[in-house]
C-alpha cells in the first residue's frame, strides 16, 4: 500500500475542517439574503486567536488548561481511524469503532471537566446539558454503527465504510437509510448545530456546547474551535462515506468525490439551519430518542 494516499488524506483531514464551517456560514448567509463572511473566515479567525494571549481565572486549575489540549488531541487521534478513501485509514484494527466513539467521549469528558473547573454557574449548566444529551446521543450512535457493522460484517471503521458497504446498499438499503438518518441527527446534536444548539447565539442561558468554553480565550480557544471543526469533519466523513459508498480505485478521484460529498453535506446543514427554529431544550431528548429509534428499526431489519 502506497504512503502517498495516506498522507494525502491525513493532510485533507487536518486542513479541511474549518472549510466546512465556512461553507455552512456562507450557505446560511446566502439563504437569508446576506453577502456573509468569506468562506475562509474560520481560518482567519483561528489565525487571529493563535496570535492572542490567553486569560486564566485564578479559580481554575490545570484541568481548565488541559481541556483545550486534550480535546483536539482526542479528535486528531480519532481522525487517524477515519477512512477518507479506501483503504486509507492510517490506523486500523478489529473493533477500532469502539475506540473511535470513545475518543469522542474523552474529548467531551475533558471539556466538561474544564467547564466545571471554572466554577461558573453558566458553565455548570452547559456541562449538565451536554452530558444529558450525550447520554442519549451515544446509544443512537452505537445502534446506527451496529447496523453498518451487521451488514458489512466488520467492526473496523475502514472496512465498515469500505467497498463492502456499496454492495450492502443493494441488499440492506432501507436499514442503511434509517441508520444514515439516525446518524445525521446525531451529527447535528453532537456538533452543536441547529435545531439542537444554536452556534450563532450570544445568549449564555440557551447555549449547550458554546457555554462550556466561554472562559477560554486566545490560542486555547483556537484549539477548541479547531477541535469542534475537526469533530464535525469526522462525523461528516463517515456520513458521506455511508451515503456515497463509491469506490473507483483512483485515489485522487475518490478523494474528490468525498470532498464534494462533504461540501454538499455542509450546504445541507446550512439549509437545515436556515429553515427552522431551534428546538425547545426539553424537546432535544425527544429528537435524540427518535434518532435512536430510527437506528433500532434499521437494526431490526437486518437482524436475522
Amino acid at each position: 500500500m502506497s504512503v502517498i494516499p495516506l498522507l494525502l488524506s491525513l493532510g485533507l483531514a487536518l486542513v479541511c475542517p474549518p472549510l466546512l464551517l465556512g461553507v455552512i456560514h456562507k450557505t446560511k448567509a446566502i439563504l437569508t439574503g446576506r453577502v456573509g463572511a468569506p468562506v475562509l473566515q474560520p481560518y482567519y479567525d483561528l489565525w487571529k486567536l493563535l496570535q492572542k494571549g490567553a486569560v486564566y481565572s485564578r479559580t481554575t486549575s490545570w484541568v481548565f488548561r488541559a481541556g483545550p489540549l486534550v480535546s483536539p488531541a482526542a479528535f486528531l487521534t480519532a481522525a487517524l481511524f477515519v477512512p477518507l478513501t479506501t483503504p486509507s485509514a492510517l490506523l486500523s484494527f478489529w473493533g477500532d469503532v469502539v475506540l473511535w466513539a470513545y475518543l469522542i467521549g474523552v474529548a467531551r469528558f475533558i471539556t466538561v471537566l474544564a467547564a466545571l473547573d471554572t466554577g461558573s454557574s453558566f458553565e455548570g449548566m452547559g456541562a449538565s446539558r451536554e452530558v444529558t444529551f450525550a447520554s442519549l446521543a451515544e446509544p443512537a450512535l452505537f445502534v446506527a454503527l451496529a447496523v453498518i457493522a451487521k451488514v458489512t460484517g466488520s467492526v473496523q471503521l475502514s472496512e465498515m465504510f469500505g467497498p463492502v458497504l456499496g454492495q450492502a446498499w443493494r441488499t440492506a438499503g432501507p436499514a442503511l437509510a434509517l441508520a444514515a438518518a439516525s446518524f445525521f441527527l446525531v451529527l447535528l446534536a453532537e456538533n452543536a448545530r441547529m435545531p439542537v444548539d444554536d452556534p450563532t447565539t450570544h445568549l449564555e442561558l440557551t447555549m449547550i456546547h458554546e457555554v462550556m468554553v466561554l472562559d477560554h480565550s486566545g490560542p486555547d480557544f483556537a484549539f477548541i474551535l479547531y477541535g469542534s471543526a475537526l469533530k464535525l469533519f469526522l462525523f461528516s466523513v463517515l456520513l458521506v462515506r455511508l451515503l456515497v459508498p463509491v469506490h473507483i480505485g483512483v485515489v485522487w478521484l475518490d478523494l474528490v468525490i468525498v470532498v464534494a460529498g462533504l461540501l454538499g453535506l455542509a450546504v445541507l446543514i446550512g439549509i437545515v439551519e436556515s429553515s427552522m427554529a431551534r428546538l425547545r431544550l426539553i424537546r432535544v431528548p425527544q429528537l435524540l430518542v427518535t434518532s435512536g429509534v430510527l437506528a433500532a428499526v434499521g437494526l431490526l431489519l437486518v437482524w436475522r
Binding site: 446560511k28 439563504l31 437569508t32 439574503g33 446576506r34 441547529m194 435545531p195 444554536d198 450563532t200 447565539t201 445568549l203 440557551t206 439551519e273 436556515s274 429553515s275 427552522m276 427554529a277 431551534r278
Partner: peptide, 16 residues
C-alpha cells in the same frame, strides 16, 4: 424574536 429562536430568515427580513 426570530433571532432568539434561531430562525434566521425572520431575523434577516424583519431586520431589513
Amino acid at each position: 424574536l426570530g433571532t432568539d429562536v434561531g430562525f434566521l430568515p425572520a431575523a434577516a427580513y424583519f431586520g431589513r
